[in-house]
Simulated scan of single mutants.
Amino acid sequence: MLYITGTPIGNLEDMSYRAVRILQEADSILCEDTRVTRKLMTHFEIDTPLKSYHDFNKEEVTESLIEDMKHGKTYALVTDAGMPVISDPGFELVSRMQDEGLPYSVIPAASAFTMALVASGIASYEFTYFGFLPKSSSKRSEKLSEIMHHQFTSVLYESPHRIKNLLTEINKIDSGRIVSISREITKKFEQHVRGAAAELLSKLDDEIPLKGEFVVVIDKYEESETEFTGQPKDHVTSLVEEGMRPKDAIKLVAELRGLKKQEVYDEFHK
C-alpha cells in the first residue's frame, strides 16, 4: 500500500489527524529531504523510519519499492511541504502502482498555489498552474510570454531572489496587468498583495519583503478590439518581439481572431 500523504506548508497546526495516524502506521516514510521531514516527525512524536526518495534516486529505487509493496510493505510518500507529486517527484511511482494494480490512497493537505489562488481576488473559474519558470533566460522569456498571453488565470512559483526580475519582465509586457503576490502562506508573516504589475514592482523590498517563497497569480490575457484592426502578420510580429516563439504566436493570433492557423502562418512567412 502507498499513502500519498500531504503535510503542512508552514503552520504545523494544519497537520490532519489522519495524516499523523498514517505516518505512524506506515512501515517507512518516503521523503525528499530526511532532515526536513525529521523535524515534522519529531514534533508529532512519530518514530517511523525515513527513506530518501527524490529526483536524483527515484529511478534507482522505484522498482525496489514496488517489489516491497507487492510483498505487503506499506509506504507513506511525503514532500518537504504540502502535497506530494505537485512540482515534486512521485508521479512515476504512482504510475507504476497503477501498472501493477497495487492499491494507493491520497491523504489531502494544502498546496501553496491553491491557497494563493483563493487569496488573490482574481477569477479562478479557469486557471493554469505553471509551477516554476525555466532557469534558462531564453526559455524563461518564452514561457513568460506564453503566460502573459494565456486566456486563463495563471499561477506560478518564484524564489525571493528572482521575484523582482519576474515582476520587471511582466511590467515590460503589460504594466497594467492585475497580479497577486502571496508569500509566507500559513506562517506568522503571511502576506497577500494584489494590484497592477507596475504597482507591485514599486512595493518590492519595502511593503513586500523579499523573504519566503512566493506564489504569483496573473490575471488572464484580454485582447482589446483595437488590437485586431492591424494585420495578423503585425500581430504575430509584436508577440514575437515580446519573447513568444513564432509558432506559439501564430497559434494564439489564429485563436484570438477566429482564423485558421495555416492562414496566419502563410501570411507571417510571406
Rank of each mutant, 00 (worst) to 15 (best):
I4S: 04
T7P: 02
I9E: 02
I9K: 04
I9V: 08
G10H: 06
N11T: 06
N11M: 04
E13Q: 13
V20A: 07
L23R: 10
Q24E: 10
Q24S: 14
E25S: 10
A26F: 05
L30K: 03
L30W: 03
R35D: 01
R35E: 00
L40R: 01
E45K: 08
E45Y: 00
D47N: 13
D55Y: 09
V61N: 09
L65I: 15
E67S: 13
D68V: 04
M69N: 05
K70N: 09
H71I: 01
H71T: 10
K73G: 02
Y75L: 00
A76W: 04
A76I: 03
M83A: 03
P84A: 07
V85R: 10
I86F: 11
S87P: 01
D88A: 06
P89T: 08
G90A: 02
L93S: 12
D99P: 07
D99V: 11
G101H: 10
I107P: 09
A112I: 01
A112P: 02
V118K: 11
A119H: 13
E126F: 14
T128P: 02
S141Y: 03
E142W: 10
K143I: 05
M148E: 05
M148L: 14
Q151F: 04
Q151G: 08
F152D: 06
T153C: 09
T153D: 04
L156E: 03
L156F: 06
E158L: 06
R162H: 13
K164A: 13
I170K: 02
D174C: 11
G176D: 14
V179E: 05
V179N: 08
V179A: 05
R183S: 06
E184Q: 15
T186E: 10
K187S: 03
R194P: 04
G195V: 07
A198K: 14
E199H: 15
E207C: 03
I208P: 12
I208V: 14
P209M: 08
L210W: 08
G212P: 07
G212I: 02
V215E: 03
D219M: 02
E223V: 14
E223H: 11
E227M: 12
F228T: 12
P232D: 01
D234A: 12
S238M: 11
V240P: 07
E242Q: 15
P246R: 09
K247E: 07
D248N: 15
L252E: 01
L252G: 02
L252Q: 08
E255T: 13
L259C: 09
K260E: 10
